[in-house]
Amino acid sequence: RLHIEVEGTELMKKLVEEAKRRNLNVRAKVENGKWIIEID
């Protein structure tokens, strides 16, 4: 499991799109103003 903290929506969208393209499980949520992304 990969755990990433990202500031900025554009970067988050790119990460999520790339993960979906590779058929990975992606969860994204906002915590303290940062995107928290978990990829399995």
Rank of each mutant, 00 (worst) to 15 (best):
I36L: 05
H3E: 10
R27M: 06
E10P: 05
K29T: 13
E31K: 10
T9N: 10
V30G: 06
V6T: 06
E5S: 11
E17Q: 11
K20W: 09
E7V: 13
L2I: 13
I37Y: 01
D40Q: 09
L15W: 08
K20V: 10
E38G: 01
H3Q: 12
E38N: 05
H3S: 12
D40S: 13
N23P: 01
R27P: 00
I36A: 02
G33I: 01
E31F: 10
I36H: 05
W35E: 00
M12R: 02
V26R: 02
E18Y: 14
I4N: 03
A28R: 04
V6D: 04
W35L: 07
K34D: 03
R1M: 13
R1K: 12
N23E: 04
M12F: 07
G33W: 04
V6A: 06
K20H: 08
K14P: 01
A19N: 01
L24F: 05
V16Q: 03
D40F: 15
E17N: 10
V26Y: 07
W35I: 06
E17R: 13
V6K: 04
D40G: 11
K14H: 08
R27E: 04
I36Q: 02
E38D: 10
L11S: 06
G33H: 03
I39E: 02
A28G: 03
R21P: 00
G8A: 12
K29E: 05
D40W: 15
N25D: 04
K29D: 04
N32F: 05
R1N: 08
N32A: 05
L2D: 06
H3Y: 14
G8F: 13
K34N: 05
L11T: 09
R21T: 04
R1Y: 14
R22E: 02
N23F: 13
N23W: 09
V30D: 05
R1P: 10
I37H: 00
K13Q: 12
T9P: 09
I4L: 10
K14S: 08
L24W: 07
K20R: 14
K20I: 13
N32Y: 05
I4H: 04
N32W: 03
K14L: 13
L15A: 03
N25P: 04
I36F: 05
N25S: 11
A19W: 11
E5T: 12
I39G: 02
E5N: 07
E10H: 09
G33E: 04
V26H: 01
R21G: 04
L24E: 00
I36T: 04
A19P: 00
E17Y: 12
A28F: 14
K20E: 07
L24T: 00
H3N: 11
N32M: 03
K34R: 14
N32G: 10
L24S: 00
K34H: 10
I37W: 02
E31H: 11
V16G: 02
E10T: 07
L2E: 06
A28I: 15
E17T: 09
N23V: 03
L2T: 07
E31Q: 11
R21K: 08
N25I: 13
K13M: 14
D40H: 07
A19S: 03
N23S: 09
E5L: 11
V26Q: 00
E7I: 14
L24Q: 02
M12V: 07
M12W: 10
K20T: 10
